[in-house]
Design a binder for these strands. Structure first.
Lengths: 244, 244
DNA sequence: CGCTGGTTTGAATTCTTTCAAACTATGTGG
DNA sequence: CCACATAGTTTGAAAGAATTCAAACCAGCG
């Protein structure tokens, strides 16, 4: 039985397979495979700075210069916007193997913070842009990266604008499963806290708790502990999320 | 007194000045001015097809081929996503002088429909891309266009995720004013109907009505008729939207 | 072992939605 | 030019979903 967790809306980042800490170029046996943005970065800047960061560490903040772009090696990063009044919206979570902080703007418009302990690699954006000037393939990757982010944001707008709490949680769990891969038995790890989820879905932490518990009691999911969820009824979950 | 309607978050499309139906290149007296994407399109394809469309006409739908990009000459276009269950979310409205339908994808991921009568010009995307291959400036415009859309979407996520009905309406009115320009006396034209606004802000049509009326009774705005709004208390409106 | 930060649960409140009906423009045909 | 039909908007009352406030609970940690 395939665990293929494909959402109706799979317009998020392409399924870059998660890769363990170092750079074994995945599948050399695939000659026609496109070279990813991440591979370009690694090849251009093989000695880029690698850092281990503690939880809740700010990688960059709104307004910071966008002179670096980052690879998330392990852990999870949240991208958020803050309001003058102190509200926060978590735009998205970054999963291992993904690039973040790449934007066509002199200053960051979002804040990036580690959720738990994380390892990141910093690449020079200047060097990246210079390489892109003479490399059409790389340019295409760069545009695709921004474009993917746009499509993801639009999908999220649909979720925030049209879904109720239960549907939002279902959509969130499915997208997370799709991106982070399921462990054995449809087990999914929730690196982020309930408050992060709430701020991502436009709910309160209490509503997130209650909704997760409701799904649990309905048998749709299983919640052995705060950081793990088992998607017991994948199709039931999809039915909720898809009536998107 | 300047009517400068600047939001705290002016990350929407750059303030391309609205231009009347034909192509007088605005300000030839400004040599250092950057050439806009629209000007590139016009110069590349001066004989592109111009069409007058009736209200509620579908320019393109989700899934359609992205072989054309469009200029909105007059009228308003809404960009929406539809769900299998029949729900709709209006991602954004396109104002005259703006380019829409440009996306890094073989198929459209949104539907574009005219709100009222509109005039559009269709440009070949293929020709645009070919021109971009040898034109770094044009390439930069293309990336900026997508990037601007991304920033706008992220701002909208913040609004949908963090604001209540009153704040949403205030934010909406201010952004509309910022983009479409205010007429005399802070008068703003609402080309779209209440249902469109509701679907854009994640509210119901009734809530939109009631909220607009509440703002009216509070003296923040004036609503002489359904299609016009006067922003009587601009700073009051900003205070609502900014506590974003 | 007691703190601390985070999560869960409960009860009351509030905001928004839902349902229903009235109202208003706009346009068509007589 | 009026009468009527229609689409869209506005208003009200009731219902519902999510939030707020408060307190209890739990897990990891010094």
């Amino acid at each position: 039985m395939s665990l293929a967790v494909r959402l109706a809306y799979s317009n998020s980042n392409p399924p870059q397979r998660i890769r363990s800490a170092f750079q074994p170029p995945a599948k050399p046996s695939d000659p026609a495979r496109t070279v990813t943005l991440l591979e370009h970065l690694r090849q251009l800047q093989p000695h880029a700075l690698r850092q281990s960061l503690p939880r809740n560490h700010t990688v960059f903040a709104e307004g910071d210069s966008t002179d670096q772009v980052y690879e998330l090696v392990s852990g999870v990063v949240r991208l958020a916007k803050h309001t003058p009044g102190g509200r926060r919206h978590v735009l998205d979570f970054v999963m291992p193997g993904e690039v973040f902080g790449l934007i066509e703007n002199p200053e960051h418009t979002v804040t990036a913070e580690t959720v738990g302990d994380a390892v990141i690699v910093s690449y020079s954006r200047g060097a990246l842009e210079r390489a892109a000037a003479n490399n059409p393939v790389l340019r295409r990757r760069l545009v695709s990266h921004i474009s993917d982010n746009l499509l993801t944001a639009q999908q999220q707008l649909l979720i925030l604008g049209c879904q109720d709490a239960r549907e939002k949680i279902a959509s969130f769990l499915l997208r997370l499963a799709e991106r982070s891969g399921l462990r054995t038995g449809n087990r999914l790890e929730l690196a982020m806290g309930r408050q992060d989820i709430a701020d991502h879905l436009g709910l309160t932490i209490e509503t997130v708790c209650r909704t997760i518990r409701a799904l649990h009691r309905a048998g749709t999911i299983n919640v052995p502990n705060v950081h793990d969820v088992t998607l017991s009824d994948l199709s039931g979950l999809r039915a909720l999320a898809v009536e998107i």
